[in-house]
């Protein structure tokens, strides 16, 4: 499959525009608001049909919140979300159901993402029943069986309960449920992070195969850059609620622009003891999203920080390599010297 996503003359399948989610912090006896957690603070991206966009970043960067806000599992604070050109972030929950059929989700934890008291058949059948996609019982059974074949689960798994399966098999059940309503896009929220290495490979391969076969779009939320590189078309790197760099796969991994992306890439341990790499060690910790730093949010840890970074917030803009990056570097001629990393 071509890593470049098929370009579409019409609008992308999913568009997210300036999405924000601020969680109020309550305090005191009467629940007065003390402040906000700026979990997601203005995130914009789009996903085409058949494309995989990965949202990467460290814990607390807001990547999972983006997924949940798109799914309306939490209500976004501001911004717009369009599915196939239709706005879905502000319509009432009751009118949301047709959209739910098209966007599905696979969660991280294969143990808590399936109801322990439901049989596998009922888990997979649930969305089909919800959207009235099967005329009768036998059609429903056929459809469930077909989905189980797609995710390579044995047919006899149908009558069993989730606890009888291993983590990898349970994740297959979760994927089958996500495919069940004939969805267009699946949000994979750390969908392979909890799995063992060999099982992780099975699930990653399965997701790639399903995408090729069904023309699915994937929003792949992960902290694992090596996995992301394996199955994505484009990557958006998040830091403290904002996208700092957005690029196609090759550009991002070959010529990252933002200092955070570079540090992130250089921090990933490589399974090759002979590899000699220049490592960028970031000092300090990620600041709290309750009081994000002024200016560029990365300025407290950035090895290239200068005065402008502390006062003025950089906008996501196209840079020389062809990607979008939110960094003041390259804009100011006298600090344009960037030490080469990796």
């Amino acid at each position: 499959m071509n890593p470049k996503a098929p370009m579409n003359a019409s609008r992308p399948l999913l568009e997210v525009n300036g999405l924000k989610k601020h969680f109020p912090l309550k305090s005191g006896l009467f629940g007065g608001k003390k402040g906000y957690v700026y979990a997601v603070d203005g995130v914009t991206f789009a996903i085409d049909k058949g494309e995989t966009l990965s949202l990467v970043g460290e814990s607390g960067c807001g990547k999972s919140t983006v997924g949940k806000a798109i799914l309306r599992l939490i209500e976004p604070t501001a911004g717009e979300v369009f599915l196939a050109g239709e706005r879905i972030d502000n319509i009432p929950i009751s009118q949301l159901r047709p959209m739910r059929r098209r966007i599905q989700v696979v969660f991280q934890d294969p143990f808590s993402s399936l109801n322990p008291r439901q049989r596998v058949r009922d888990i997979i059948a649930e969305p089909i029943v919800n959207f009235g996609l099967a005329a009768n019982g036998s059609e429903l059974d056929d459809r469930v069986a077909e989905l189980m074949d797609k995710v390579q689960l044995p047919r006899d798994a149908m009558k069993r309960f989730p606890h009888e399966f291993s983590g990898g098999q349970r994740q297959r059940v979760g994927i089958a449920r996500a495919l069940a309503p004939g969805s267009d896009i699946i949000i994979c929220d750390e969908a392979v992070s909890a799995l063992d290495v060999s099982v992780k490979a099975q699930i990653v391969n399965l997701l790639s195969d399903l995408q090729d076969e069904l023309g699915l779009s994937l929003l792949f939320i992960s902290h694992d850059l090596a996995i992301v590189e394996h199955l994505t078309h484009r990557v958006a790197v998040m830091y403290l609620g904002k996208i700092v760099e957005l690029a196609d796969r090759r550009t991002l991994f070959a010529t990252p622009h933002h200092p955070y992306t570079k540090a992130l890439l250089s921090a990933v341990p490589v399974p090759d003891p002979t590899a000699k790499r220049q490592r960028i060690i970031l000092h300090g910790d990620v600041p709290s999203p309750i009081n994000p730093p002024s200016g560029c949010r990365f300025h407290t840890r950035c090895p290239f920080v200068f005065d402008r970074c502390r006062s003025e917030e950089p906008q996501l803009r196209r840079v020389a390599g062809g990607q979008m990056s939110a960094c003041h570097l390259d804009e100011v001629p006298d600090v344009a010297v960037i030490p080469k990393a990796a």
């Binding site: 949940k68 799914l71 599992l73 159901r97 739910r100 059929r101 966007i103 599905q104 989700v105 969660f107 991280q108 934890d109 808590s112 993402s113 399936l114 109801n115 439901q118 649930e126 969305p127 919800n130 959207f131 979760g174 449920r177 069940a180 309503p181």
Partner: peptide, 21 residues
């Protein structure tokens, strides 16, 4: 729980969620 969120995302109506999940 993720399985309840998954059911919401799968279009399950609230009464059914209460009863089944």
């Amino acid at each position: 729980q993720p399985y309840v969120e998954a059911a919401v995302a799968a279009g399950t109506r609230t009464p059914i969620i209460i009863l089944k999940h």
